[in-house]
Each structure stands twice: as structure tokens, then as C-alpha cells.
Design a protein around this nucleic acid. Structure first.
Lengths: 281, 281
DNA sequence: CGCCTTGTATCGACAGACGATACAGTTATA
DNA sequence: TATAACTGTATCGTCTGTCGATACAAGGCG
């Protein structure tokens, strides 16, 4: 049941799952004088939900977060009191709490890129009539911060906070095109290579090819690398220093577009939008 | 220079500010055996940004969160290491970190209401061609969890996590219409009465009138109570037990609609959508 | 019906967080 | 230019507050 031919479903990553193939935030936490363990434990507990598709029981949280049962209990109690964790509707187990959205709001509000980008993206969506996303570059992954749907979408793919590997998304490749070679190598080397679909390109040489192409034309195009039937075009958005901070995506369906037609139609629009965002201070 | 005529700008709440008139989450935290102070401190530190419009310095965080400078320093250091706080682009001060969006994603993913509502809302937006929101009922406030823009919007009003008082929004009134009288009284009594605009209705009797009306017709309509020029229609979304969990909003501009025309056009659509969401188990 | 899992609660011991304090680097004021 | 007022960073000893162990009530399930 585990590995069959090697190209079966088991090898492909499931995009709807919380498991997005990105390693844990805590690689080798040094125990500084300044590093507060109890704070880290609290966030570990909250992070237990990253890998879950359903409400978690207390003991499930404990083992998922690698914290003792007692500690988990007390932390959960505290987080629940503060509204960061809630009981499930049905009363069976815990789910993340609504107070988390307050911090989401703070993050989005205080992110200058999002502020600059929002009006431009709304314009872009009106003109393009396809799905528009803004994703933020976070090392190995691109995190969606603003999503503007146009047609019917799968549920999970439309959520703020969803993240996909930098390696195999149009926006990620566009971002890599603006990074020094060494950093690109580094990202490719450290990235998870498991494919999402049969078309996902994860071979270092092939990825590099796409990155170089993106350097030439100013945008990156991916076809069915994350979602079957989807073509996506990404253009990087740069910070004042010229460093890429994220990317604009335009995504469409292969049932309506050929990849080349899609690129011809939307590359100018996306580039223009990215330019508008970069230009504003 | 403080209070002039009493109806000046100073009396109105600024919707773009982080200050949304909602009291702090911590009213009177009892120090249980089970309550972990250091966890609460960490979240207090993160909450310092709720009232800020710009990056905060270490000392600013300390005093905004009511935590000693030393403690704030260590907590910030930890949160930064974990990615929950970042340095500002310009290097002056701190802002919330991108890792917060991971928890946003978890919250949205694991919220069954959002899962059920998303496809319905996308349909609704396609049919209505106006802005569609899903807000979640959280005591005195309604928190926006999904936003589907259609036309140009002001930046801050479009963010996930934005919250507005239950008292004076269409969705909040629709929710109150499904609550027992005592709870409605309670909410009205505890709510902040500061108006957003000249048209904001905060008088208890008048609010009750609107709630009763919503009980009759099944929806609530607000005109310019939060944003000048905006008319909004809200319909409650119920949980399995019949308790209101949130609301669907449709919002339009008074430059295109009279309030009555807006209600006639969109009340059926919104009700139908809410019904579809309620129905699905 | 007893068994297993759920969440809740208490207590003593000692890990570890707290406040005080100090220092270096940068921006503002005299 | 001097100097004051900030920034962020770092160290240390005391004592606070968290940890693990342990126990118990309330459902759910065979």
C-alpha cells in the first residue's frame, strides 16, 4: 500500500492538506539567555494544527507539538482563555481561535507591500478577469497574503496564509530570478522535491532553466505544476533595495487558454501592475 | 481643544485605525493554577500592534503591552527568532511576522463555517456583482473572515481580520435577531457607543427596533453607519443548534442604489445563500 | 458493564524568567 | 561639536512561576 510504481498518488503532495512539505520553523533553536522557552512552547502548541485536518484533542495536541501532556493542558487552557484556541462546535476537541485573526489583521495592515499592492491588484483583477494573488516571499515558500477570486475555486486554495514552495510556483520562480545565483542554488538545494502533480518541475537544472528564462522575459509561467488544469503567471514585486519581497500571480484555466496565449495576454498586464507597485516609493 | 460641539470629527471613530473601539481581550484574568502567565505575556506583546499604525520600537512594545522592558525584550527576541515578529524593512522597529499567517490559515481551514460558505459566497458574488463578506460573530464584534471585492475599495476595509462592532453593522444586527432577548440586551449594554459616522445608530432603543425588524424580514440593512456612502445588507448564518455563528454581507454604494432598491434586489439573493450554507449539515 | 479517552485539577521541586543594570550605536537637541 | 535621548543588545543572581506526576469526574464505546 505504501510505494507502488513510484509515480502513484502517494508520491504527490496533497495541496488541500495542511502538510505542505515545508519543514518546521524550529531547526536548531539556540538557548540564548534571551530566548524564552515558554513562549516557544505556546507557539508550538498552536502550531500543532498545521498538520491537522480536524479538531485536535488535548493529548493529540500534546504529541503533535512535542510537549508534555501537562504542559499542553495548561497552555491550551491559557490560549483558550485568551481566545486563541476554541472548542470545536461539536464540543469534541479544540480548534484555533478567532483572536488569531486580530494578528492577521495587524500583519496585513502593517505590511507596506500589501498596502501598496491592494489597489493595483484590484485594478488588475478588473482588467484581467482571472484570479489574482499576491504572495510573499518567505525563504522556501511563498505565502498567499491577498487573494482575489474571479471564478469558482477549490476551497483550500483560496485561503489567506496558504503557502506553496518557492521552487515550483510562478511567483517563486519570478522571485528567484531577482536573487543572486548563490541564493537560488541554496533555495533549490534546501527545497522539498516532492511533486504536486505529474508536471511539477523539481529537477535543479530544469528549475534553473526556468529561472533564467524568467530573468530574460521578466515573468515566470508554470503549467499544472501545483494544480492540474491551471496555468499561472508570476511577476516579482521588489522592495526599495531591489530585493524581491513577493510576487503577483495571475492564474487561469487550461480549458480556456493555451499557455502561450495566456502569457501573451497577461504578461504585459502583470508586469505593468508589478511596476506600479514597485514605483510607489 | 478636545470636545467642541460634540459632533465633530473627534467623536467619530476612525475605521482605518487599529483602534476599533473594542475593549481588550483581558478583562479580569484569574490566576489559575492552569493559567500560564508567560504565554499571556507573549500574546500581549504581539497584541501591542493592535493599536499601532506603524512599526513599534522595543520600548514602545513594552509600554503598549504593559510588560517590563526586559521581559518585552526577551519575548520579542524569541518571537523574532520564530518568525512571529520581523524587523521593519527600513530597520526601524518591529512589525508582526509572516508566520502569523500560518495560524490564520489553520484557523480558516479548520473553521467548518468558512468551508461551507466559501463556494456559496463565490456564487453569490458572481450573481450580485457587489462586495461580499463573511463575518464571524465574536461577542461585541463581527470579524471579517472572507472578503470578495468587486469594485474599488479602501485599503483597510478589505483585510481579513478586520472587525467592526456587532451593534452597528448589518451582519451584527442580523445575528442579534437570532439571539435571545437577554443576550441582545447584554450586547447592547456592553458595546462601545461611539459612532463611526453621523448616521451610526447606537441608541439602545433604536438598535432594538432594527433588530426586531430584522427578525421580521430575515435580514438587516444599514445605511452609512460605518462607511459614508455605503449601504449594507446582512443575513445571519446559523450553526447546527440554530445559534448564529456569523453573517453574510452584501455591500454597495449609495451612488448606485437607493437603500430600498438595494434591499429589494439583494435580500433574496443573500437569504438564499445563507439558507444554502445553513442547510449543508 | 467495565474500559478507555475525554477534560479538569492539585502540589512540591527546581528550571528558568524577571528586573536591574550596563554598553554600544544611532539620531536628535543644545 | 558636545551631549542628551534614543535605539537594540547582553549579563547575572534571586525567587517566581512552570513542570511532571498524579488523581478524578464525565462521557463514549464495545
Amino acid at each position: 500500500m505504501a510505494s507502488s510504481t513510484g509515480n502513484g498518488d502517494g508520491m504527490l503532495r496533497n495541496i488541500v492538506s495542511g502538510e505542505n512539505g515545508i519543514r518546521d520553523p524550529e531547526p536548531d533553536i539556540r538557548e540564548d539567555q534571551l530566548f524564552v522557552q515558554s513562549v516557544a512552547r505556546a507557539l508550538q502548541v498552536l502550531s500543532a494544527f498545521h498538520r491537522s485536518q480536524s479538531p485536535l484533542s488535548l493529548t493529540a495536541i500534546a504529541e503533535a507539538s512535542g510537549v508534555g501532556r501537562s504542559a499542553a493542558q495548561r497552555v491550551v487552557h491559557t490560549l483558550q482563555t485568551l481566545g486563541y484556541i476554541e472548542r470545536d462546535e461539536a464540543g469534541r476537541g479544540y480548534v484555533p481561535g478567532i483572536r488569531l485573526l486580530d494578528h492577521t489583521h495587524d500583519y496585513l495592515r502593517l505590511n507596506p507591500l500589501i498596502e501598496r499592492a491592494t489597489p493595483v491588484l484590484l485594478d488588475l483583477r478588473r482588467n484581467a478577469r482571472e484570479r489574482i494573488d499576491l504572495s510573499l516571499f518567505d525563504d522556501l515558500r511563498m505565502v498567499y497574503a491577498a487573494r482575489m477570486q474571479s471564478k469558482r475555486e477549490t476551497f483550500f486554495a483560496t485561503l489567506v496564509g496558504h503557502s506553496v514552495p518557492t521552487l515550483c510556483t510562478s511567483g517563486g520562480r519570478a522571485v528567484m530570478a531577482h536573487l543572486p545565483d548563490a541564493e537560488v542554488d541554496d533555495i533549490i538545494a534546501r527545497s522539498d522535491r516532492r511533486p504536486f502533480t505529474d508536471k511539477t518541475i523539481t529537477d535543479p537544472a530544469e528549475v534553473w532553466e526556468r529561472v533564467l528564462e524568467a530573468r530574460q522575459v521578466g515573468y515566470a509561467l508554470t503549467v499544472e505544476e501545483v494544480l492540474v488544469g491551471e496555468v499561472a503567471l508570476g511577476v516579482a514585486v521588489l522592495g526599495p533595495s531591489g530585493r524581491p519581497l513577493g510576487a503577483i500571480h495571475i492564474a487561469g484555466s487550461l480549458s480556456e487558454w493555451t499557455p502561450t496565449a495566456f502569457a501573451e495576454r497577461f504578461a504585459p498586464l502583470a508586469s505593468e501592475a508589478a511596476y506600479a507597485i514597485n514605483r510607489v516609493r
